[in-house]
Nucleic acid binder design. Structure first.
Length: 709
DNA sequence: TTTACAACTGTTTTT
DNA sequence: CAGTTGTAAA
């Protein structure tokens, strides 16, 4: 069980190639805080330290906890670790906060007051559960918007507060607190747990159960945390609970990359940590191994505008590199066209598509760029958006699966009791609900009791029982296949216009289950369902294909690319207007910009559009202040002409429309109006005109008798 | 009960 | 503009 005694050579070899600061961090005795700038080799330090601790016999793999922020980072850490050391990493506690808390709760579900096969609600499920609750309690969902209730519940759980502990100064908050309590009661009844609950429940489990706490405290000798600046107060308190007198906490973070305050991240944890453990100074890693110095200087210059920081400047031995290039686009379509032409030009120079990332502040911005790349025939891959396990058809299939594990799962029941439609409508549902309420049972039990009354309902009950029986003894992948096949979902989507992709996804679900059972060495359906909720599924198609990478700045954190294009640099968009209204919002937006810039190794392009379509309306934005914060000497401006001098004519290029947007035109019937936009090509092309009295109208360009004024 | 369509509304970032 | 919600008709 214990690691072999230290050998002189093995641990030393691990330190080869590290700079003095990195080495100090890896070998630090006891607890330490590492302030690791972007591209300073933070992940390497973290994994090397674990390897070094194990190889030098200071700890066994069994005594290590490593917490990361994303599943991807956890996987990467395990992969690097097993490359450094010949150990079996499967028993190690490496994962996200949510993943580790989930593990803890599964192991000790009884002590945590949860049923053995408790299920996890993702954000979508949680919202649905709240809507259902509001309806059941007959709450005016205009006054108590479901999203707001959800935010209220999550914010307080993340602060470690249960409903009775929440202060409610006014009647409105009082009602919210009541709803919080009701929501928790409903979850408890149904045996489900939301994301925030995973953390809070795990925290409470350890804080209330001294025996359990002491067990883990003496077991875990080294706790390592990645992206420490993104931990919440509760997460930090959880870590502290896990620490015994002999436990060392090694936290790596960068306050300049703290971009999740909106979700409860508390940068103050870094200072708190120093204070709690009596540490004087963090270990600073400031040498950057990623970017050319022009890029680094731009990043340093931007982040220097923030007041709230621990302070550090990145440096590099790399050369200045190319200037940063800035393009001012006419509108979002022009911006997208610039991206297309740039990608084509870079590719002709021999650059792989996968080396190029297009970043944006908000997901909605991807559409225009995707459209342009698609029509130009360029390969691209979009990160984020709807993930595999979040797709409606997958959630339906998962609901059937959940019912085979636990038919009392009301949320799953409601999701599929009438999907595909089998004649169980609102009325029947009301009756089931009333019966369940009267007898204090789950919807499923009520449905079973009144089975014969409604033919569709009886079919459904029989179906779920059949599936349950049929899958009881099957290995995971086959069970999934059986349920998907028996659910009738495939037949349903076959009759739908664009159901083909959905059917493909349903088939893919069985593959995902097979992959899971190999990877996790488990045939447990409940575990697979938890995996689906916790890891919404990167596993999208062709991760390794050569394609331009499209993602939000948030999603780009931790990644790096040869070339980065940051789009939408307009006031109101980046920095986002909503952020400007909140305390400290601007500084967080600036950190976001800092993260975006530091993703680039060699080339950085910045674009902004003078007008951008938003909610179907044009919007005018001034260039982002972040552009002004970059020293002018580092930036080269690309004029419109320069961009268009690229010989490749993008096939996306909007055809010549007769009147520019904003042009005043005369219509024979409605009089004078203003051209707002166009749609379609050739003979079907339509024009949208806004008239003072009648509002906006669409006309077929070829027929509308318009003349310029 | 289901379907079709009109009206309305809201849009930051996510484990 | 798109996704959701509500109302009317089949």
């Amino acid at each position: 069980m214990h690691a072999s005694p230290p050998t002189d050579t093995a641990p030393q070899g691990l330190l080869d190639g590290l700079n003095p600061e990195q080495r100090a961090a890896v070998t630090a005795a006891g607890s330490a805080l590492v302030l690791a700038g972007a591209g300073s080799g933070k992940t390497r330090v973290l994994t090397t330290r674990i390897a070094w601790l194990i190889a030098s016999g200071q700890v066994s793999p069994w005594g290590v906890v490593a917490v990361t922020f994303t599943n991807k980072a956890a996987r990467e850490m395990l992969a690097r670790l097993s490359a450094l050391l010949p150990i079996d990493t499967r028993g190690m506690w490496v994962g996200t906060f949510h993943g580790l808390c989930h593990r803890l709760l599964r192991l000790h579900h009884r002590e945590a007051g949860l049923p053995q096969s408790f299920q996890i609600l993702d954000a979508q499920d949680q919202l649905a559960a709240i809507k259902r609750l509001l309806k059941a309690l007959d709450v005016d969902s205009e006054r108590f918007e479901p999203r707001r209730v959800q935010a209220f519940v999550n914010a307080h759980k993340e602060a470690g507060l249960r409903a009775p502990a929440v202060e409610a100064p006014d009647p409105y908050s009082q009602r919210l607190v009541e709803l919080y309590a009701e929501y928790d009661a409903q979850c408890q009844r149904e045996g489900v747990v939301d994301f925030a609950e995973l953390l809070l429940r795990a925290y409470e489990l350890l804080s209330r159960n001294a025996l359990l706490r002491e067990h883990y405290q003496s077991r875990f000798r080294h706790i390592l945390v990645d992206e420490f600046q993104d931990t919440s107060r509760l997460q930090y308190r959880w870590l502290r609970l896990l620490m015994g007198p002999e436990t060392a906490l090694f936290a790596v973070g960068d306050d300049d990359q703290s971009i999740y305050a909106f979700r409860g991240a508390h940068v103050g944890n870094m200072a708190q940590f120093l204070q709690d453990l009596g540490l004087a100074e963090p270990i600073r890693l400031t040498q950057n191994y990623r970017s050319q110095s022009n890029i680094l200087e731009a990043a340093n210059a931007v982040i220097r505008h923030n007041r709230q920081r621990l302070g550090k400047d990145l440096w590099t031995t790399a050369g200045a590199g190319e200037p940063i290039r800035h393009y001012e686009a006419q509108d979002d379509a022009d911006e997208a066209r610039f991206v297309v032409e740039l990608v084509q030009a870079l590719h002709e120079d021999g650059r792989d598509y996968r080396d190029i990332a297009v970043l944006y502040r908000a997901n909605a911005q991807s559409r225009a760029i995707e459209h342009a790349l698609f029509t130009a025939g360029l390969p691209y891959r979009v990160y984020g958006g709807l993930r595999f396990f979040e797709r409606a058809e997958i959630k339906h299939a998962l609901a059937y699966l959940r019912l085979t594990v636990n038919p009392e799962d009301d949320a799953a029941f409601l999701r599929v009791v009438n999907f595909p439609a089998r004649g169980v409508g609102a009325r029947t549902l009301e009756a089931i609900d009333a019966a369940a309420r009267a007898r204090g049972t789950s919807l499923w039990q009520a449905a079973c009791a009144m089975g014969g009354k409604n033919k569709g309902l009886a079919t459904f009950v029989a179906l779920v029982e059949d599936l349950r029986r049929a899958t009881a003894e099957l290995p995971l992948a086959e069970a999934v296949q059986t349920v998907v096949g028996g659910s009738g979902l495939i037949e349903h989507y076959q009759s739908e216009r664009d159901g083909a992709e959905r059917i493909d996804n349903l088939r893919e679900l069985a593959n995902a289950a097979a992959a899971f059972s190999v990877e996790a060495d488990s045939q447990d359906l409940a575990a697979f369902l938890a995996h689906a909720a916790l890891e919404a599924g990167e596993h999208a198609a062709a991760a390794h294909a050569d394609a331009v990478q499209l993602m939000t700045v948030h999603a780009a954190k931790g990644l790096e690319f040869h070339t980065v294009i940051i789009t939408g640099l307009e006031e109101g968009l980046f920095p986002h207007e909503n952020a400007l209204a909140t305390e400290g919002g601007l500084e967080e937006e600036r950190r976001l910009m800092y993260v975006a810039i530091t993703r680039a190794r060699h080339r950085l392009y910045l674009t902004h559009a003078r007008t951008r379509m938003l909610h179907g309306q044009p919007r005018y934005g001034l260039p982002s202040r972040f552009l002004d914060e970059i020293p002018p000497g580092l930036i080269q401006s690309l004029g419109r002409t320069a961009a268009h001098s690229t010989p490749v004519a993008a096939p996306t290029r909007t055809q010549a429309y007769p009147y520019p947007i904003g042009c005043r035109v005369q219509h024979t019937r409605y009089g004078e109006g203003v051209v707002m936009g166009y749609q379609g090509q050739g003979a079907q092309a339509e024009v949208r005109v806004s008239f003072p009295r009648v509002g906006e109208k669409w006309f077929i360009l070829a027929y509308a008798k318009l003349s310029p004024c």
